[in-house]
């Protein structure tokens, strides 16, 4: 079997591994499994985007769209529907970010199907996404509610609630990223245990339903939840106006 650290197989083994290290201004920097898998996912997304771009540009409005164009339209319709239903009139501004987030997280989550270790099973990948969401929330809060509105929101029921409200604000990115990370990690661990401890079942094709549950179902749900919560928090921050 493959013995490359990127692939999930062999022993019970789901930890992140360093592939090689190099010196960067005196610090030792490791290129790990996560980097390689993220690059593969990005490469797939870029190729998909290039093909989609070409298909859309070449599209002829007089005839029925081809298979690939149909799939792209289906995807955009679906994502547009989600963003529109949550954010309403602000949808156009955030649709691009949500699309990117959705595609990246979804492809990362289901990359277990391709034999990769999902990049989202690394806290170093999900935490930055949580931080980006936090930045969006804070920026939009200050932009749309002004400083007075933010201060008013902080001492919501009473002035002494400020620390609790602050903790609540800072818990958002942490809980958001931990939820995604732990869900994908649990799937990865289960698959690694299955592959490592029950090798006889692997040979007769049993793990497919586990893959469907842990990679496809759980991955899709968590992607949906991450995007949904991001949109909800951001539109909360924008307020009704």
């Amino acid at each position: 079997m493959f013995n490359y650290p990127v692939l999930l197989s062999g022993d019970v083994d789901f930890m992140i591994k360093g592939i090689f290290s190099y010196n960067c201004f005196g610090n030792e920097v490791w290129i790990t499994t996560t980097h390689v898998c993220t690059l593969i996912v990005m490469l797939l997304l870029i190729v998909f985007a290039l093909f989609a771009n070409r298909a859309v540009k070449k599209a002829n409005t007089d005839e029925a769209p081809g298979t690939f164009l149909n799939i792209v339209e289906l995807l955009i319709d679906f994502l547009d529907g989600i963003v529109n239903s949550v954010m309403g009139k602000n949808a156009a501004k955030f649709a691009n970010y949500i699309f990117t987030l959705f595609l990246f997280i979804f492809l990362s989550n289901i990359s277990g199907l391709m034999g990769l270790r999902p990049p989202t099973a690394d806290y170093g990948v999900t935490f930055p996404m949580g931080v980006i969401t936090f930045g969006l929330i804070t920026f939009n809060k200050f932009k749309h509610q002004k400083v007075s509105g933010v201060i008013k929101g902080l001492c919501d029921p009473w002035v002494f609630w400020i620390p609790i409200n602050l903790i609540g604000d800072f818990a958002v990115p942490i809980s958001l990223s931990l939820r995604l990370f732990a869900n994908v990690l649990s799937g990865t661990v289960m698959m690694a245990l299955y592959y490592g401890l029950l090798p006889i079942f692997v040979k007769i094709g049993i793990p497919s339903f586990l893959h469907i549950y842990f990679d496809l179902f759980s991955g899709a749900i968590q992607t949906y939840v991450f995007c949904m919560l991001t949109m909800t928090y951001v539109s909360d921050a924008i307020g009704a106006e």
């Binding site: 809980s175 931990l178 939820r179 732990a182 869900n183 990690l185 649990s186 749900i221 968590q222 939840v225 919560l229």
Partner: peptide, 11 residues
């Protein structure tokens, strides 16, 4: 999915 978070913290 939100309710699941506490269980995931245990994990």
């Amino acid at each position: 999915a939100v309710a699941e978070t506490t269980g995931l913290y245990g994990l």
